[in-house]
Design a protein around this nucleic acid. Structure first.
Lengths: 249, 249
DNA sequence: GCAAAAGTGTTAGGTTTACACCCATGC
DNA sequence: GCATGGGTGTAAACCTAACACTTTTGC
C-alpha cells in the first residue's frame, strides 16, 4: 500500500488503507451528468478519487480532489457513505487490467473508501485528468459505462443519497446556473427523481414556496417561445428546506 | 497506534487509524435512551466503539461491537457518517485523563472513526462493559453527561440522521417491542422529533396508513385506562416507507 | 371519588392532483 | 405556416390542523 506520496520534493505521509471517491454531478441539456476518468492506455473508466494525507481532514482531502479535477474552489460536497467490505472488488482482475499503470504490489491490502458527492455548475467546470488517467470527461448518467472497482455501487449509493437530500439540501442552488428557467429546474427534479412532473403543478408549488424570484428577462436565442428566467431567493430557499423540506415525491 | 489485538492466543491484525463508534438507541418509559460506557476508575463516559479487524467488513465490525455490548445478534444498524478531522479532540487532555487505563503512546496518530447508530428493543438488552470500562448503562437522551473525545458531536449527528430516517426507515419496528400501544408509538415519534403531536391526528394517520393492526388485547397492570395493543403490519409498513415515507414533520 | 391517562369526531383550510389549450419563436 | 416547447387555471379529492370532552382504571 502507498503510505507516502511525493509532491515536488516533499514526501507526504498518507493515512494507510484509506481512500476517497467522488461522484461529481452536473446538470446540462436536461440530463444529469457525472465526471469520470479514463485510465491511461485503457478504455476503462472510474470515479475520481484520491488518498488521505495525515495532515488533512477527510473534507479537506475531498476538496483537494475536487479542485484538482474541476478547477473549482467552492463546491457543494457531502460525505454520503463509507465503503468497507474486505474484498470490495476482484483484486486479481484489476491488477491484470491496470498492471501497466500501477504496480500490482499496491493492492496487497484492502482499502476503505469514503464516498463524497459533489454538485457543480456544469458550465464552470474544466475537467482535468490525474496522473493515472488520460481523460476526464462528463458522461450522461443514463449511459455511464461499466465502472472499475466497486464504483458502480458507489454511484448507486450517491444517487440514492442525492434523491433523499433533494428535499432538504439546496441542490438546485448548486446544480443550476445562477439564472435558470422554470423548465430547467423542473427537468433537474425529473432527472434526479427519475419521474415526470406536471409543469403546472410544479410551477405553482415552487412559486408558492417563494424560493425563486422571476427576473425581468427571458432566455434569448433558444428555439420556440422564450422562457422567463428565475433566480433563487437563497435565504428563503434555505428556510423552506430547514422547516421541513420541499417534496416532489 | 494499536495494530494488533489478542483474542485468546491469537493475534488479530487491525486496520490502522480506523475505529468505529456506535450510538445505540433504545426507547423506554416514554424517552429515548442511549447506551454509554464508563471508563475504568473514572467518572468519564463515552460511546461504545471498537477497532476494525483486517478480515472483517465495517458492518461486521459494528455487528461485533453491538453484540459485545448488548448481547444481541440481530440489530438494526445504519452507518451514518465518518468522522475524520485531523485533531478530533484534545489529545493531551485525554491522555492525562485516561493514562491509567490506556498507554498514552496509543495516541500518537490520528484516528478516523466510522459512526453507526443502532436501534434495539430496550427490554431485550443486557448491557455489558468492555475491557476498558467498568460500567455499561442506559442514559436518558435528555441528561447524557459530557462525553469523552468528540462523542458529543457524534451523538448529535446520529440523532440528526435518526430524525431524517424516521420517515423512511422502519424505526418503530426496531425501537418498539413487538406489541405496543398507540401512545407508546406516538411518544416514540415525539421523543425522536423533539415535539408534541396531537394524539387524535396521530392515530388517524397511523391507522389510515395501515402500517399497524389492532390486537384483541389491552395492556394490563397499568395505572388508569388500559390501552389497546397494536403490532406492525411489517409488509405494509415497509411498502409505505418505500413509496415516499410517512411524515410527521 | 379523584387523579391520570386513553380514546375518540368534526370542521375549515390548505394542498395535491388531474387535466388541455393557446402563445411565442425559429426555421 | 408549422413544429416545438413555454406558459397558464380550475375543480375535485384528499390531507392536515385545530380543537375538548368522555371513559376507564388504580389508588
Amino acid at each position: 500500500m502507498i503510505e507516502k506520496v511525493s509532491v515536488g520534493s516533499e514526501d507526504i505521509e498518507l493515512v494507510p488503507q484509506l481512500t476517497l471517491d467522488c461522484v461529481i454531478f452536473g446538470f446540462h441539456d436536461n440530463v444529469l451528468k457525472i465526471l469520470l476518468l479514463k485510465w491511461k492506455g485503457t478504455d476503462l473508466w472510474s470515479l475520481p478519487g484520491g488518498v488521505i494525507r495525515q495532515n488533512e481532514s477527510l473534507d479537506e482531502a475531498a476538496i483537494r480532489v475536487l479542485k484538482e479535477r474541476t478547477g473549482m474552489d467552492k463546491i457543494f460536497l457531502r460525505q454520503f457513505y463509507t465503503f468497507g467490505k474486505v474484498q470490495r472488488y476482484d483484486t486479481n482482475d484489476i491488477q491484470k487490467q491496470l498492471a501497466h499503470v500501477i504496480d500490482p504490489k499496491l493492492w496487497y491490502q484492502r482499502a476503505i473508501s469514503i464516498g463524497y458527492y459533489a454538485l457543480v455548475d456544469y458550465e464552470e467546470v474544466f475537467p482535468n485528468p490525474d496522473h493515472l488517467s488520460d481523460e476526464c470527461a462528463w458522461w450522461d448518467l443514463s449511459d455511464v459505462p461499466q465502472l472499475l472497482f466497486d464504483h458502480g455501487e458507489i454511484l448507486e449509493k450517491a444517487l440514492h443519497a442525492l434523491r433523499l437530500e433533494l428535499s432538504f439540501q439546496p441542490i438546485g442552488l448548486n446544480l443550476l446556473p445562477e439564472k435558470f428557467t422554470m423548465p430547467d429546474m423542473m427537468r433537474m427534479y425529473e432527472a434526479i427523481l427519475g419521474k415526470k412532473i406536471d409543469p403546472r403543478n410544479f410551477q405553482k408549488k415552487i412559486l408558492n414556496s417563494g424560493i425563486v424570484v422571476k427576473l425581468k428577462e427571458v432566455k434569448k436565442g433558444v428555439a420556440h417561445k422564450s422562457p422567463f428566467l428565475y433566480k433563487f431567493e437563497e435565504k428563503r430557499y434555505k428556510e423552506v428546506l430547514k422547516e421541513g423540506g420541499l417534496f416532489f415525491i
